[in-house]
Design a protein around this nucleic acid. Structure first.
Lengths: 120, 120
DNA sequence: TGGCAAAGTTCCCTGTGGGGTACTGTGTTT
DNA sequence: AAACACAGTACCCCACAGGGAACTTTGCCA
């Protein structure tokens, strides 16, 4: 446990306490959709409707909600074009991009885990 | 999205479907304690009571439950010594060890995320 | 005049991840 | 005989993440 020096200081984020960076990371991308959303945005800036197409099995509400949280956490950037019908583009911030290597590893690890599990 | 070839085949694990390895990884270590447990076990084989000491803010029940799931998923190994009082040691399997680099990155990333967030 | 488009918001509901508390079994020490 | 040690299980509970369905806003097009 990489306890931060003698003081055992507590990390806080939005009023919640975390003992380790792992928990922080999981709090930020550990939801049901967030990691996948980041993964998709890493390839490309996307409009809301693009994301809807990618995540056909969720609702507009869920997508909106997850995206807003990611925005609040500084991981994605939301650009609204003031036109009708509305156009909103989502892209990764620098911080959002910085997590990509982790997502990549998670993707690979998960795949090979399954491969190992299915070939006993 | 690293869609696995033309067939868009669905990955399954314990009757649940996953579109991407990321979701599999999160399903395995995405709970409230699992990642931390793996992290601790990576340092050392530990007895149940050792883990209880490390995770003083959870209950025996929770620990047991998480450990059993990790065991069922093949990430930790559970060794029971047939003696009284009981002695049970937990350690990582090879598969468990293989996820360590990801945990390390998550730990680092989470820490620097917080650092950035707290120094605006 | 009314239907549609994009990107939401509001209200309400449900499943389940996480948790509290108490009970269990069995040898050993006092 | 009673308390303790360890590693559990059994039962019950709740908050909240996730989700369904309907309503909204503003302009354009037929």
């Amino acid at each position: 446990m990489q306890q931060s020096q003698s003081t055992a200081e507590v990390m806080t984020l939005r009023d919640k306490e975390y003992k380790c960076g792992i928990d922080v990371t999981l709090a930020l991308v550990g939801g049901k959709w967030k990691a996948s959303i980041l993964w998709h945005l890493a390839q490309d800036t996307m409009r809301f409707s693009d994301l809807q197409r990618q995540f056909a099995d969720t609702t507009r509400k869920m997508l909106t909600q997850q995206l807003r949280e990611l925005e609040a956490d500084g991981l994605v950037h939301r650009k609204v074009y003031p036109q009708v019908p509305p156009k909103v583009e989502y892209s990764l911030t620098e911080q959002g991009k910085s997590i990509f290597p982790i997502l990549e590893m998670m993707c690979d690890w998960g795949s090979s885990y399954l491969k190992a599990a299915n070939t006993p």
